[in-house]
């Protein structure tokens, strides 16, 4: 067992974990943060994508011990005081999800893209999301949603908090 300290969606946790425990299982099974799902076991599908210290990571391919001392943001940490992130709004408005299983990872990956490239082309969006598989939508509405969200300002706790 190894002792780790991880901040997830703004809350700090300290735990003893098996060194082989995957970050996604730590989030889901230990912390009960089931908003991040598991879609495959070969890191192809991207459903488990989270933000790890400012970069996206497939949490099925990261050990919990590797996240020691890190800050993790999941889809459950995006809304601020109940206000949805622009990508969450755009996915809803553009019908960019059907079953919704890929959606948390898709939104996290798109958020990373928009930080790097605030004004992407449709082609940029498609390529940025190539590590995230969706079986329902054919991606067209996902691309539309990400383009819609581009340019919107991400809410931050400081701005919104009273």
């Amino acid at each position: 067992m190894t002792r780790i300290s991880v901040t997830v969606d703004g809350t700090k946790y300290e735990d003893e974990v098996e060194p082989r425990l995957l970050l996604v299982h730590y989030l889901r099974d230990r912390l009960g943060l089931t908003g991040t799902p598991v879609g495959c076991d070969t890191s192809n599908c991207g459903a488990c994508t989270v933000d790890l210290d400012g970069v996206t990571a497939k949490s099925c391919s990261v050990l919990a011990v590797q996240a020691d001392g890190s800050e993790v943001t999941t889809v459950q940490g995006l809304a601020v005081n109940g206000e949805w992130h622009p990508l969450q709004k755009a996915f809803h408005e553009r019908h960019a999800l059907q079953c919704g299983y890929c959606t948390p990872g898709m939104i996290m990956a798109a958020r990373d893209l928009l930080r790097e490239n605030p004004a992407p082309s449709a082609d940029d969006v498609r390529h940025a999301l190539e590590g995230n598989l969706c079986r329902c939508t054919g991606y067209q509405n996902i691309v539309r949603a990400v383009l819609d969200a581009a340019g919107s300002t991400e809410p931050s706790a400081q701005e919104v908090a009273p």
């Binding site: 908003g35 459950q76 949805w84 919704g100 299983y101 959606t103």
Partner: peptide
């Protein structure tokens, strides 16, 4: 969509 985009979905797992 509300539960699906915010990670509050109730998947069996």
């Amino acid at each position: 969509d509300a539960r699906l985009v915010t990670g509050q979905t109730n998947w069996t797992d």
